[in-house]
Design a protein around this nucleic acid. Structure first.
Length: 579
DNA sequence: GCCGTTTTCGGCCCGACTGTTTTCAGTCG
């Protein structure tokens, strides 16, 4: 079951879609959409809020608060059920076709009776659309192509893959003499876990050669849009890449604009309007005289709006602007704050690199400490034994003498379906750090799963719960558990929760990081590296922690070694708290 | 449907591109 916030957001979004497609008031539609994203991004769990509490969420008024309350209480909303009964099932899916918005979806439904993508394809095949008002041969061809493309590309791509692709195109563009600056913007710069399409930005006085180069890079499969300031291509792998070319003097306002999020931009624009100004990708202007106020750097635009620069990772309009206004912007953890990795593997279990190579790479990164946490015996396929663990400990102690880096001997325990763990307390006491995680039986009931994880959190030897939700982005849904209860227990017992940096995990995600932090939970940002290159994934974990507003004080592996060691001794921690 | 230091009514971010128009509507981000 999804979080209540997500459930309510999905309800509101479906409402918006159905209203739009049945020809409803566009402003009402937008009100539902705004409320949907406000609820999804609301930093607190709405499960136990009453109508008054829901009404306090920005963009949620009395009417929508009542509908959300109905949903949370009864599991359904009467008005939505009525609307579903009036709009044919399948019609909503038409909105997923790029280029087909609510107006035209409504048009093909009301004039041709089309209620699904399949029927739309039939109509396209028979050329029945080109006779509708406002349509022609080209719009018919484009729609058919869009449906084929959606089939080809479809799903959003992972952050790391998008970043690689962006850097490949940027490398070509940066070579051009006309290009002054070039970077990626959009959800990629905000380090969202998945990216729908890639937004690139170039500063140049001469756009034509840049567009020419962009539309002919080797990985282009088709040019979707070709203009003087904006072009879009589809890559051979089905990923859409958009390029905007702007004057160098408007670099800052353009970067701000194209980084988004949309909600963040709208918030800034409204502030500008209130101050008698106008904000666009071309700059901040005086609304009356049209005089340019700021445009060259992001910092200058923020400053003229009365704000400090805001990190792209938190530009989601979930309170960052208000925080900036009141001087309470969080001091976010940075990659350079990280002093060590607390969850890594070697070829003793399922890693592919030798202990010495992993340690050497960690040292080269400038870490001051490094934990080796190979799997424990209950993950049977890894064939770990007591003897192997002790022998590894001996090797680590030897290696540490010459390595110039503090090595922590740890292990990653398997949390069994009943919450029991590998090894007994005496044996576990010999490790410097103990990580525990779920590797199987992901589909337990919410109650069973919560009890299972709580048992591990309460265990006196367990320091970190790794990849807590067990999700695999795009492949496996997160487990269902009572996160509030788990966060409270983790905070009380001094058990850290991991922000796993692997691009296909990013677990906890930004939203859960934020909830965990507000419950007082400490975080461990780790790579779970199984090979040397995986150590570089730390930047994705740090970005995810930033998206949850985490600062260095929240992240135990930014702490000096002595402080970390005190945290890793749960008995001593309990003693300090009792005292 | 939401919202308010000009407003409880009358607005609601703004600009680019495409394809259909002969001055604009629809879609997207």
């Amino acid at each position: 079951m999804p979080r209540s916030n997500d459930e309510a957001a999905e309800m509101l979004q479906e409402f918006a879609d159905l209203l739009a497609i049945s020809g409803g008031d566009p402003f009402k539609v937008r009100a539902y959409e705004k409320a949907a994203s406000a609820v999804a991004g609301y930093p607190r769990d709405i499960t136990n809020l009453d109508e008054k509490g829901l009404d306090a969420i920005p963009s949620v008024g009395t009417h929508l608060a009542r509908k959300i309350a109905d949903l949370l209480r009864t599991g359904s909303v009467e008005e939505l059920d009525d609307l579903r009964a009036r709009v044919p099932a399948g019609l909503r899916s038409l909105l997923d076709v790029p280029g087909l918005g609510p107006k035209r979806a409504h048009q093909v439904y009301s004039e041709l009776g089309i209620t699904s993508v399949a029927e739309l394809l039939d109509a396209l095949h028979e050329h029945r659309l080109q006779h509708l008002h406002g349509w022609g041969e080209r719009s018919e061809e484009n729609l058919a192509q869009a449906i084929r493309d959606a089939h080809l590309g479809g799903a959003r791509i992972q952050l790391a893959i998008a970043l690689g692709l962006a850097e490949e195109v940027l490398a070509v563009l940066s070579e051009l003499p006309q290009v002054r600056r070039a970077t990626y913007a959009g959800s990629l710069r905000r380090m969202c876990e998945t990216v729908g399409d890639i937004d690139l930005l170039v500063a140049s006085d001469e756009s034509e050669p840049v567009m020419e180069a962009f539309c002919t890079v080797p990985l282009v499969s088709r040019v979707l849009v070709r203009g003087s300031t904006k072009s879009s291509i589809l890559t051979t792998k089905g990923v859409q890449v958009d390029l905007r070319v702007v004057e160098p003097s408007a670099w800052g306002s353009a970067l701000l604009y194209f980084t988004g999020s949309k909600a963040h931009n709208i918030h800034l624009r409204k502030m500008a309007v209130r101050a008698g100004e106008k904000l666009s990708e071309y700059g901040l202007f005086d609304a009356g005289s049209g005089r340019l106020i700021a445009a060259e750097t992001e910092e200058s635009v923020y400053a003229q709006l009365g704000l400090p620069w805001i990190s792209p990772t938190i530009r989601e309009d979930t309170g960052e602007v208000e925080a900036a206004l009141s001087g309470k912007l969080p001091h976010l953890v940075q990659l350079g704050d990280i002093r060590g990795d607390l969850h890594t593997h070697t070829d003793l279990t399922d890693g592919v690199a030798k202990l010495e190579d992993m340690v050497g790479a960690a040292k080269a990164r400038g870490y001051s400490y490094y934990a080796v946490t190979d799997h424990a015996p209950l993950l049977y396929m890894q064939r770990m034994t007591d003897e192997k663990a002790l022998e590894q400990r001996h090797r680590i102690r030897e290696l540490e003498r010459s390595a110039g880096i503090t090595l922590l001997h740890g292990t990653e325990l398997n949390i069994q379906p009943d919450g029991s763990l590998d090894w007994d307390e005496d044996f576990l006491a010999g490790f410097d750090i103990v990580v525990a995680s779920v590797h199987s039986a992901f589909r337990q009931s919410r109650d069973a799963m919560t009890a299972r994880i709580l048992r591990a959190v309460e265990h006196p030897a367990v320091n970190v719960i790794a990849h807590p939700t067990g999700r695999s982005i795009g492949r496996r849904a997160p487990i269902d558990a009572d996160w509030d209860a788990i966060f409270r227990a983790a905070a009380r017992t001094g058990t850290a929760l991991e922000v796993n940096s692997s691009p296909d995990r990013l677990d906890l995600d930004g939203d859960l990081v934020r909830l965990a932090r507000s419950a007082g939970v400490r975080l461990a940002v780790s790579t779970d590296a199984h090979a040397v290159p995986h150590l570089d994934n730390m930047r994705f974990g740090v970005a995810t922690a930033q998206r949850g507003w985490a600062g260095p004080a929240d992240v135990v592996n930014t702490w000096p070694l002595a402080k970390l060691r005190r945290f890793l001794d749960k008995h001593a921690q309990a003693h300090v708290r009792a005292g």
